Amino acid sequence: MGFKLLSKLLVYLTASIMAIASPLAFSVDSSGEYPTVSEIPVGEVRLYQIADGVWSHIATQSFDGAVYPSNGLIVRDGDELLLIDTAWGAKNTAALLAEIEKQIGLPVTRAVSTHFHDDRVGGVDVLRAAGVATYASPSTRRLAEVEGNEIPTHSLEGLSSSGDAVRFGPVELFYPGAAHSTDNLIVYVPSASVLYGGCAIYELSRTSAGNVADADLAEWPTSIERIQQHYPEAQFVIPGHGLPGGLDLLKHTTNVVKAHTNRSVVE
Rank of each mutant, 00 (worst) to 15 (best):
A59Q: 15
P138R: 09
E267W: 09
S139D: 13
V256I: 13
D29L: 10
T140C: 05
W55Q: 01
Q103A: 12
D164R: 08
Y135H: 07
V11F: 10
P152T: 02
V28A: 11
P239R: 02
S137D: 01
R128V: 11
N92S: 08
A178W: 07
V237D: 03
R263S: 13
V126N: 05
S264K: 13
I224D: 03
Y48S: 10
H241K: 01
S31F: 10
A25H: 15
V45N: 04
H154A: 08
A90E: 13
L243F: 13
E80F: 06
E33G: 11
A179H: 03
G163M: 05
I74Y: 05
T60Q: 08
A234F: 03
S7H: 11
K258Q: 13
P190G: 08
R206D: 15
D164S: 14
E39Q: 11
S208C: 06
H241I: 02
F236K: 10
I186P: 00
R120C: 05
L96D: 00
V28N: 12
G240W: 05
G245W: 02
N262P: 11
N92I: 04
A15V: 08
E150W: 02
I20R: 07
L243I: 15
N211G: 11
N211M: 14
H117Q: 04
G89R: 01
Y196F: 15
P69R: 08
G245H: 03
G242L: 04
P152E: 00
G32V: 10
K4H: 04
S113T: 07
H230P: 06
G2D: 14
A178Y: 06
K4P: 05
A213C: 08
A144F: 04
S30L: 11
I50R: 03
E225K: 12
N255L: 10
G163Q: 06
E203W: 03
P176R: 01
H260E: 14
L73N: 01
P35T: 07
D216G: 06
T261H: 15
H57V: 02
P232A: 10
T140M: 00
D77Q: 04
P170S: 09
Y188N: 04
G163D: 07
F174N: 01
T36A: 13
G242H: 05
S191A: 13
H241W: 01
D214W: 06
S38Q: 09
H241A: 01
P23M: 09
Y231D: 02
P239Q: 03
F168W: 09
V37C: 08
Y135M: 02
G240R: 04
D119C: 01
V112D: 06
R76T: 08
T36S: 12
E101C: 04
V212C: 06
M1D: 04
G245E: 03
G163T: 06
S181W: 03
G210W: 04
T207Y: 10
V189E: 04
L9Y: 13
L127Q: 01
A51E: 09
K4W: 06
Y196H: 06
H180R: 04
S162F: 12
W55F: 05
G198S: 06
L127A: 03
A130G: 09
S193Y: 15
E219P: 04
E233V: 11
S264V: 12
D85L: 00
R76P: 03
L9A: 13
A218H: 14
K251S: 12
V212D: 07
V166R: 10
V146M: 14
L10E: 13
S191R: 11
K251D: 14
V194D: 01
N255M: 10
Y12C: 10
G43L: 04
G131L: 05
D183V: 02
V45A: 08
H180M: 00
H154R: 09
N262W: 09
T60F: 08
L24S: 13
L10F: 15
P170M: 05
A66F: 15
F174L: 09
R141K: 13
L106W: 06
A259C: 05
Y34R: 08
A234Q: 01
G240H: 07
D29C: 07
V212G: 11
E80R: 07
D85F: 00
S70G: 04
E225P: 02
F26H: 12
Q228A: 12
G65R: 08
D119F: 00
H260G: 14
S16T: 14
A111S: 14
S155Y: 08
S162Y: 11
F174T: 01
P138Q: 09
D214I: 06
S139F: 05
A129M: 14
T60C: 05
I201M: 07
P232F: 09
T109K: 14
V187P: 04
P170C: 03
P244H: 04
Q103Y: 11
S27G: 13
Y34F: 14
Q61N: 10
H57K: 02
Q61W: 06
M1Q: 05
L82M: 10
S113Y: 03
E233Q: 13
E80I: 06
Q49E: 12
W88F: 02
Q49Y: 11
P69I: 11
S113E: 01
E80N: 09
P41F: 07
N71D: 04
I227H: 04
E157Q: 12
D119P: 01
L96R: 00
S137G: 05
P239F: 03
F63S: 09
F3G: 11
A59I: 07
P176C: 01
L143N: 07
T134D: 02
V28M: 15
Y175S: 01
A95C: 05
L97T: 02
R76Y: 04
H117K: 01
S113V: 07
R141V: 08
G72L: 02
H260C: 09
R46M: 13
R110M: 08
L250N: 02
R142L: 14
S137R: 07
Y188H: 05
I40K: 05
I104R: 00
L106A: 09
M18Y: 15
S62W: 09
L81E: 00
K102Q: 10
T261A: 12
I104S: 00
T86N: 03
E145W: 12
L24D: 15
A165H: 11
R226L: 09
G245V: 02
C199L: 03
H57I: 00
A259F: 08
S161H: 13
S113Q: 05
S160E: 14
H57E: 01
V54K: 02
I227A: 06
S22V: 11
Y34G: 08
A144M: 04
E145M: 14
F174Y: 11
L83G: 01
T153N: 09
Y135A: 01
V146D: 14
S161C: 07
T207L: 13
L96C: 00
L73C: 03
C199S: 03
V237L: 05
D248I: 07
Y135Q: 00
A234N: 02
T14K: 11
V166D: 04
E39P: 10
G53K: 08
K4A: 05
L97E: 01
D64L: 10
P138W: 08
T182A: 13
G65V: 07
L82H: 02
V42M: 08
G169V: 04
L249P: 00
Y135K: 01
L243E: 15
A218P: 09
L247I: 15
T207W: 09
I58S: 11
L106N: 05
G177L: 04
L249E: 02
L156W: 03
P41L: 08
K102T: 11
I58W: 06
S62C: 06
S113I: 06
I17D: 06
V146C: 10
E225V: 11
A94K: 13
Q103K: 14
H260M: 07
K251C: 07
A111T: 07
D79R: 10
F174G: 01
D183I: 03
N92E: 03
D64V: 08
P170T: 07
V45C: 04
A25I: 10
A133H: 13
L106K: 10
D164C: 03
D216L: 08
T14Q: 08
G78M: 08
G65W: 06
L9V: 14
L127V: 02
V265G: 13
M1I: 06
K4V: 06
R226W: 07
T93C: 00
S137T: 14
A90S: 13
L47A: 03
S113G: 06
P232H: 09
L204N: 09
V237M: 02
L185G: 02
M1N: 05
I224A: 04
L143A: 08
D183H: 01
R120S: 08
V266P: 14
I227T: 09
T134F: 02
I151K: 07
A178L: 05
V257L: 11
S113D: 04
L249V: 04
G32E: 09
S162W: 09
H252F: 01
A213V: 13
A98F: 11
E145Q: 14
A259Q: 13
G197T: 05
F3Y: 10
E39H: 10
V189A: 05
A133Y: 12
P41H: 09
T109C: 05
P221Y: 06
K258C: 07
Y188W: 14
